[in-house]
């Protein structure tokens, strides 16, 4: 098991290196001069040059790339061009905001999604199934900013129950978490339904039923545990996607998470922060995948990590 994890973690390194190179090339392919953008349109050439020196952009590109790799190896990405703070620190600060929002959203999505999925599976092909499925898939199908706009209008502007802006304690998290949960909720419900149906059709469930166990008991005790495996996988992947920062939802609710930081850093051509963000996204993705595979093993003892 430990050897497996270690091997998987080692495999991450070439992927991340590839990502780092792609990111560096991408950043320098962006049109726009960070120094001019930071200085503003009414800055003199002198001022722009001062900023270029401050950012280390006055050196040849090759030298910059060597610096970049060298810094990267020591876990340092330099200071943000926007606010002068260490880029990695900025990324981590905003990451924690995204993390909490994503966690609430995914818990909500998993809880409701699995319940809806069970209901749909148990009453398969009924109108309840159709209704639940349609609603769940509807959650995936609605543009998040449309849903966000409607929630703001109803609950913040008209009823004044929750604030619009995400940065005001737990109450500020409610509307963005609901909006963010809609998509994963639908995906999870869909998976729970089909996975449960599959398990319900398998031999051991039928045996359990034949032994005279009543239907709900079969569903909960026997079928669910087996059915949960793909659902957990899916939930984990969805969580990974949420951790990427929901650019659109964060913008609608004015929530300064990673998506917000991404938009800010791209528009300011804040190279160190863009680099940090993209590396964190890639790392997250790889780690979530690993975590999902491990959870798989816990839930299904038949899988072993030889």
């Amino acid at each position: 098991m430990l050897a497996y994890i270690l091997r998987r973690l080692l495999e991450v390194i070439p992927t991340l290196l590839g990502v780092a190179v792609v990111v560096f090339l991408f950043i320098h392919a962006l049109p726009g001069d960070p120094a001019r953008l930071a200085a503003g349109p009414d800055a003199t050439v002198q001022e722009v040059q001062l900023l270029r020196e401050r950012f280390g952009l006055d050196k040849p590109l090759v030298v910059q790339f060597v610096y970049f790799l060298n810094n990267l190896a020591r876990g340092n990405l330099g200071n943000s061009y926007r606010d002068g703070k260490p880029a990695l620190l900025s990324v981590m600060n905003h990451f924690s905001l995204t993390f909490w929002l994503s966690l609430i959203a995914i818990l909500l999505a998993a809880l409701v999604g699995i319940l809806v999925g069970i209901a749909a599976a148990v009453y398969r092909n009924s109108w309840l199934d159709l209704g639940a499925t349609t609603l769940a898939v509807g959650g995936i199908s609605v543009p998040s900013f449309f849903l966000g706009m409607i929630l703001i209008y109803l609950f913040a502007v008209n009823l004044r129950i929750f604030p619009v802006s995400g940065g005001q304690g737990w109450r500020g998290l409610v509307l963005p978490a609901l909006t963010l949960a809609a998509g994963p909720l639908g995906t999870i419900a869909r998976f729970a339904r089909s996975s449960l149906l599959e398990v319900l059709g398998e031999d051991f469930t039928r045996t359990a039923r034949a032994k005279g166990l009543s239907s709900p008991v079969v569903v909960f005790k026997h079928a669910l545990r087996n059915a949960l495996i793909p659902v957990v996988t899916m939930t984990g992947l969805q969580f990974g996607f949420l951790l990427g920062g929901a650019v659109v939802v964060e913008s609608v609710f004015n929530y300064p998470g990673l998506g917000w930081l991404l938009i800010q850093s791209i528009s300011a051509r804040d190279y160190p922060v863009i680099e940090g963000l993209l590396l964190v996204f890639a790392l997250e993705f790889v780690l979530v995948n690993l975590l999902v595979d491990l959870l798989y093993g816990v839930l299904d003892p038949r899988i072993s990590y030889a």
Binding site: V164, S251, N254
Partner: peptide, 16 residues
């Protein structure tokens, strides 16, 4: 800091 104009106005309307 609220870059999105519609959000900004909604915050005025909601009393924030």
């Amino acid at each position: 800091f609220v870059p999105n104009a519609a959000t900004r106005v909604a915050m005025l309307q909601s009393g924030e």
